[in-house]
Structures are given as C-alpha cells and as structure tokens.
Amino acid sequence: MSEQTTFDVIDSVLGLGAGSELKALREKRDKLKALTQSSYLAALRPKEPRNFPYALRAAIAARMCGLWKVDELAAHYRGLLEQEGATPELGNVADAGWTPGDAPSRLTAILRHVDLVTLKPKAATRANIEALYAAGLDDRDIVTLAGLIAFVNYQILVVAGLKMLRDN
C-alpha cells in the first residue's frame, strides 16, 4: 500500500502512534476510520478539483479549524496549504481572524458562507445560497463548497470528541 492509503490525518494530528490505546480503539471501527480518511481525500484532493483548486480547499479548511480553535487540525491544513502552493491571499483565507472587505467578489461570498455554516448553520437560509449564485458560483460549485464545509466540520467534531477520550 502506498503512503497515501496508510496515512491517517486524525491519528497524525492527535499524535496516536503504534501502541496508542485510542488508536487501537479507533481500529475497532476500521471501516469507519478508513472511510473518514477517504472522505478527507475526496474533499481536499478530489480527482477533479474544478473551480476549487487544492490550495483554496486547504486554506478554507484551515480557516474552519481556526474558527473552532482546533489548533492541531488547523496546523495540519496550514501545512497542506504550503504543500499545495500558498499565496498571500490564501494565507489570509486560512486566517480565521481575517475578514474580506465589503467589495463584492466570489471569494468574499465564499468566505461569508464558510464562516456562517461553520459557526452558525442554524441561521442559514435560501438567501445564503442565492448570494453564492449571485457571486458566480454554479450548482456544482455550491455542492462542492457545502461538501467541503460539512466534511471539515465533521472532522473537527471527531477530533474534539477523541481528545476527550485521549485526555480523560
């Protein structure tokens, strides 16, 4: 098996090596564990990145982890961003403390949606999807973005929950 298929992001960010009890527990649900990792690859490194290049995906993921202050995972995504090709603009995207100006743009609309659906999904309405269409996103772009936001939030919750098992 290649490095890509044996590496597990969650084990890695939680520092779970050989002999770790929590790693052994995760492996009792080996199918789920493998599908969590393959979902990560599908969200961050899909075969067809289309209008969401890998570097933008990594930057958005780092931002969401920063919004929830899940530092280990944020560090992973900042590292991934470096690997995929960081730019000053993407560095801003990855910084949860940075908000884009008021000038309407595709990136501004995307980040507003990322921040809302990460922190306060309850408040999302049809108007938020209309704003994405107005900024030039097409149907598939909207599903791509929703899928990336949803996956990374799942991963954030899993990491937060596993930390309680690791530390208590």
């Binding site: 659906v117 999904p121 949803a150 939030n153 991963q155 954030i156 899993v158 929950g161 098992l165």
Partner: peptide, 18 residues
C-alpha cells in the same frame, strides 16, 4: 456516540443549508 453526533454535524450542514 462521538461519530453519530459528528456525522450530523456533516448532514445538518448539507440538509439545512441546501
């Protein structure tokens, strides 16, 4: 339990927003 909560952090963010 962690996974059942987390997978709905995923599902809710699709179903409620799309």
């Amino acid at each position: 339990l962690i996974h059942s909560v987390a997978i709905f952090g995923w599902a809710n963010r699709l179903m409620h927003t799309l």
